Amino acid sequence: MADPRPVWEELRALGDVVPAPWGGYFVTGFEACSQVLRGRNWLVPDFDWQERQPDPRRWREPATREMTRTLSRLNPPVHTFQRRALGNLFDRGTLEAMRPSIAGHVTRLLDRLALQLRSGGEADFAATVGDRLPIHTVGQWLAIPAEHYPRILDFTHRQVHAQELLPTKSELAVSAQATLEMRAFFTRLIAHRRRHLGNDVLSGWIRYWDDRYPDDRAAADQTLYDLTMFITIASLETTATLLTNAVWFLTRDPALADWLRRHPEHIDAAIDEVLRYDPPIHLNSRYAAADTLLAGVPVAKDTTVHVLYGAANHDPRRNANPHVFDIGRKGAHLTFGGGAHYCLGMALARLEARLLLGELLERFPTLRPTAGPTYASRMVFRRVTSLMVTA
């Protein structure tokens, strides 16, 4: 967890496509991973695929089924239908409209960080700022009252176990309970908003899907729940990890932090290098829609492949000296995915990171980590649980 780079390097030394112990393959090379993410003959493990497995019971856990209905686990034409309905969620106009409120959240959260630093000498950046900025951002965008934010974060952290590669029974039980809480919360939210429609994003979705399903309120409610729940929770842990990783990598080197403070025009490049160096998602899965070849390896229909973002981003054939953190490299990364499932919230995550780093570097020129980050024990979604800092 603290440093996955040796694991990526060892796997990549075995080839671009490496057999996994439980069947299927790890995909390690940049070009092979890009081919899987962008290719139309690679699909996400949806309900149909799950039912074709030798032991489909593995996929019938309530938390697993809940996530299988979301955009990240839908294939065309259903995925195409829902994604087109959303449009470009975070286009330039939307981001510019959101910028003042995000900047306000950044200032208030950094005020809280400053208070903790003055009173205690050190503070947990992850808990104080990193975890909180994404929920404040998406919560206000969807007009969710702020008193609900801690609860949303809590069930998001627990529900994510169901999206692990090999979850244990106890982890699935934790996810099942979190799923019940999540379903109750968003169901009530949508019902309340339908009774009090406004000019917010969620009200617009309600009007759209009620119009699409005029004679089937249950279908409209299910689609609204799936979209609202997924877009909310998908924007939290991944962005939080990006934000805390950025502070860790950029402030542990005082000279780099000082240079970036004096050259803020390079903040976007720094964000991209953070995303390349330590992606918030370590692994994503696809299956072959038909018998195919991947990097010269025969892959049978329905076989699962696991795209390793970190291994791909550290492929020396694509990024020279990949284990060197270099904000001037102008390299390439696959952290936001590709193809039909390219990350919906990419532009929003970048904006949050840009605004946070710009103000943090200016206000806290001597901010430094007092120790390395601590991490949740996961294989798929990276989560920094703590980063202690001082100024």
Rank of each mutant, 00 (worst) to 15 (best):
L348K: 10
I135S: 01
E352D: 08
D302F: 14
L344G: 02
D46A: 08
R382P: 00
D226F: 01
T251K: 12
G39C: 09
A295Y: 03
A347G: 07
R112D: 15
H136K: 05
D226Y: 03
S170M: 10
L172Q: 14
S377T: 09
F364E: 00
A218W: 04
P264I: 12
A312C: 10
R118H: 10
P45N: 13
E66I: 01
R118Y: 02
P322H: 08
A2W: 06
L142A: 12
P365W: 14
P214S: 10
D111F: 07
T80L: 13
D55T: 08
G372W: 07
S101D: 11
G339K: 04
F364G: 02
A97C: 02
Q82I: 11
E171P: 03
W22V: 14
D3H: 12
D48F: 09
P254N: 04
E122I: 06
L367R: 08
E96K: 13
Y375E: 04
P145F: 02
A127T: 06
P76G: 06
H266N: 11
R217I: 05
A85W: 05
L113I: 14
A234I: 08
D154G: 05
D55H: 15
H306S: 12
G296W: 01
I102Q: 06
D326N: 14
G296A: 08
A2D: 15
V17A: 13
W22N: 14
L243W: 06
Y375Q: 02
A240H: 08
T292C: 04
E273R: 01
A114Y: 10
